[in-house]
């Protein structure tokens, strides 16, 4: 896939001396959903703000669609829609008015039909003539998305799109992001909800203390770093593990009804088959078994801990 955003050796040092970003290089591919994952204060918003032109970089360069964000800012910015993290809106402007304003700001001729479609897609059409101040928090968030989509951007930045958003709205948001991706829009979202990245992203970057720790296909990441667990439900329960099984990575639950085996999913030899054979030989009987995979959340926590 072609690269749509290219970030080269980007650093940001604020006037206070705080180094928010440290020598970041990153390529975003056209048409993907890219999740930027990191704890609070990791530099996610700073990175997005630089690409969008809100913060001036200290070192390095960024190009969007082949256009340098400084030398050719008109062309690069016209490609981008940004949904900020905070609900920053005007108060007395109407919903429709503010979306039309955004379209104009990005240099596009008025298109009431398109704005109607965007507002309908985001279930805001009924509120089109209401002043923004009268909208609920969820509506304001959707309105910010409508504003970002008003000029038909090729790239959409969503900064913490589902922070403080209820479950059903979060589902709606995820659906919207998938629809956008299907229409060819590249979506970059930041989040500290791992399940969001796990649910949505094609690729994941983990950022911590201003540095990119890792960039990986989500599926690959899960495969590489995900531990798997095999759980056996024992019947009858077992009091202690037979000595022959103690050398293995086995754990018996206190009530003796559950036996858990942990293994790396990336290992060629999972060891399940010989294990089951040994268990049978030891005369342990089980009536059910299940396997589970470590979530992205566990992966993330262990990565960030390693850094600390």
């Amino acid at each position: 896939m072609a690269t749509i955003i290219r970030i080269n050796n980007l650093s940001k040092i604020y006037a206070s001396g705080f180094r928010a970003l440290n020598n970041i290089s990153l390529d975003i591919r056209r048409g993907e959903i890219f999740a930027l994952l990191g704890p609070n204060g990791a530099g996610k918003t700073t990175l997005i703000s630089i690409v969008c032109g809100i913060v001036t970089p200290s070192e390095g360069s960024v190009s969007v669609g082949g256009h340098d964000i400084v030398a050719d800012y008109r062309a690069s910015r016209a490609l981008i829609g940004l949904v900020p993290q905070e609900l920053t809106t005007d108060a007395f402007e109407t919903a429709r008015g503010t979306v039309a304003f955004s379209r104009g700001l990005f240099g596009k001729a008025p298109n009431p039909g398109l704005i109607e479609k965007i507002l309908r897609d985001l279930s805001l059409w009924d509120k089109r003539d209401n002043p923004i101040i009268s909208l609920s928090g969820g509506m304001k968030r959707r309105l910010l998305i409508a504003k970002a989509l008003s000029h038909e951007p090729q790239i959409l930045f969503l900064d913490e799109p589902t922070a403080g958003v209820d479950v059903s709205l979060r589902r709606d948001m995820w659906q919207l992001v998938r629809r956008l991706r299907d229409s060819g829009v590249t979506v970059i979202l930041t989040t500290h909800y791992i399940e969001e990245a796990e649910e949505m992203a094609d690729r994941v970057a983990v950022i911590n203390k201003g540095e990119i720790i890792l960039v990986e296909e989500k599926a690959e990441l899960m495969r590489k770093l995900g531990k798997k667990q095999l759980t056996l439900q024992l019947d009858p329960p077992l009091e202690t593990l037979p000595p022959g099984l103690k050398s293995r990575a086995l754990e018996l639950s206190p009530d003796g009804r559950q036996l858990t085996y942990t293994y790396e999913s990336s290992d060629e030899e999972s060891g399940i088959v010989p294990l089951l054979e040994d268990i049978r030989q030891a005369g342990i009987r089980f009536h059910d078994l299940q396997t589970s995979q470590r979530s992205l959340e566990d992966i993330f926590v262990s990565l960030v801990k390693e850094e600390a």
């Binding site: 969008c52 809100i54 008109r74 910015r77 016209a78 940004l82 920053t88 700001l105 990005f106 504003k147």
Partner: peptide
């Protein structure tokens, strides 16, 4: 933020 990120 919107003004700063716009091609203006």
């Amino acid at each position: 933020y919107e003004l700063l990120s716009a091609p203006v």
